[in-house]
Design a protein around this nucleic acid. Structure first.
Lengths: 114, 114
DNA sequence: CTGGATCCATTAGGATACTG
DNA sequence: CAGTATCCTAATGGATCCAG
């Protein structure tokens, strides 16, 4: 399907695709924006705050954890609670998250004005 | 400033989702990065350069055009050729595209180092 | 050259119920 | 409370053929 003739040209595109591979889907950046900008959250809090159903949230959190963007901490409460926090590495995504928030704001303004 | 952020905190998630709604999928930001950073391309050029099959590319271009991010120009050649360019509005996505390219570069470096 | 039509495989996402 | 199991639908992506 894709040949290797254009290796140099494709570098920029593949950087974008690398990023998309990590933060793909409807929810990962939403989850990260909560944890990065607002701080630690429990599973149920995240679910309510974002509107993500438990099954999806569980999967997304696993994937984010695998990419070292969030950390999971089990608390010795009864019943057990779990805290999710963004890692230092997630801080490097602030530029991306911020850019998307700003663009979304501006875009909504534009759409409303039409 | 902080008050302002707090007030808008409820909407931050939907701003991200607005942006994701426009540039969703594996390909839209790749296509835009080509047209914005490297200039006008024909249909076949885009297909080869990005590795997107014609059917998918066609659909993505339609959606980008609907969102006024690219423009389509039919040329009076034989056979007909079509030129796709990024619009002025697409320039506003440069911040997002740039942030994702930089993060992808950095991320690849990190992954390799592990 | 452009790009639609058809067909198919894979994945993403959602609702609900349920267990430790 | 946290998360998994099950089931299901919709969306995404790709291959190939074909027509203007």
């Amino acid at each position: 399907m894709k040949d290797n003739l254009d290796v140099e040209c494709e570098n920029v595109h593949s950087f974008i695709q690398d990023t998309l591979y990590v933060v793909n889907g409807k929810w990962k950046l939403v989850i990260l924006s909560i944890l990065v900008n607002k701080g630690t959250r429990r599973f149920g809090e995240l679910s309510r705050e974002s509107g993500i159903s438990p099954r999806i949230l569980s999967r997304e959190l696993h994937e984010l954890e695998m990419n070292q963007l969030i950390s999971r901490r089990v608390c010795n409460t009864k019943p057990v609670t779990v805290e999710y926090s963004s890692t230092e590495y997630a801080e490097t995504l602030k530029e991306v998250i911020g850019a998307m928030i700003r663009w979304g704001q501006n875009h909504r303004k534009k759409i409303k004005g039409q």
